[in-house]
Amino acid sequence: MKELLAIEWMKIRRYRTFWVLVGLFLLLMPIWNFEVAYGLINLGGGKQGVNFLNTAYSFPDVWSNVGFWGSIFVLFLSILVIIITTNEYTYKTNRQNVIDGWSRLGFYHAKVLLVFIISAIATAYVFLLGFIFGIINSGSAANVFSEIQQVGYFFLLSVNYLGFALFLSIWIKRSGLAIGLFLLYSFIIENIAKSIINHWTDLPVGNLMPLQASDELLPFPIMQMAKTMMGNSPSISMNVYALATMLWCLVYYYCGKMILVKRDW
């Protein structure tokens, strides 16, 4: 495992696109959260705008805020995973890795490990941002750990998105098409399907679709507030969404594995 990761690191550490995307992720996320926290991003724009996003950045609400916005930024990382993986197909280095003595599964597991490592680092970063904003806005570290499960949800969401991106890349092999389909699916296709399913069911079963299941773990804080105010529409518990997310990750893993083991390279 250490060997797989060491080689994966050799591949990406000299790849400029990797550093640009990671750098943007690290740079833009605190700026964005800062602007939301202090009302710079608002409805209507300018100084008269309605500061509807300015929800609390103090403990414990800060976790759901940085978690939600972090989930949007995971798109950067998903695209990064797609680029890194499809590069192997473009350069045919996936073949060369196997020719040189990796097993097909070795190649796959190196990428799966990368998904976990990137998710772990992103999660640590979300924790760090939440902690800093929380301390500044709360004035004390009391309540730090209440609602801390949001950080765990972020990790699940990240593994889900990156895992889905990895699966798409392996399946489709071509960078442009995989990125296009990834964005199309996550923004449009899944929403269409979700709405149709939810229209016909009492419980919002459509929310259990692959990416949506983890989106539900970190909902848009304002919408969450609105929902709570509107009262008791039937809902699915967070535990179910967490479980569904993990199940989807397993599905991507096995589908990817099947494709890699059975297909010509």
């Binding site: 060997e3 050799m10 350069y91 045919k92 040189d100």
Partner: peptide, 23 residues
């Protein structure tokens, strides 16, 4: 096999580092 397959953004010596590690 067929074509030389290497990481385009890396130098020869760095590409060979990967080959050496796998082998």
């Amino acid at each position: 096999l067929e074509t030389p397959n290497f990481y385009h953004y890396m130098s020869a010596i760095d590409n060979l580092e990967i080959t050496a590690a796998i082998r």
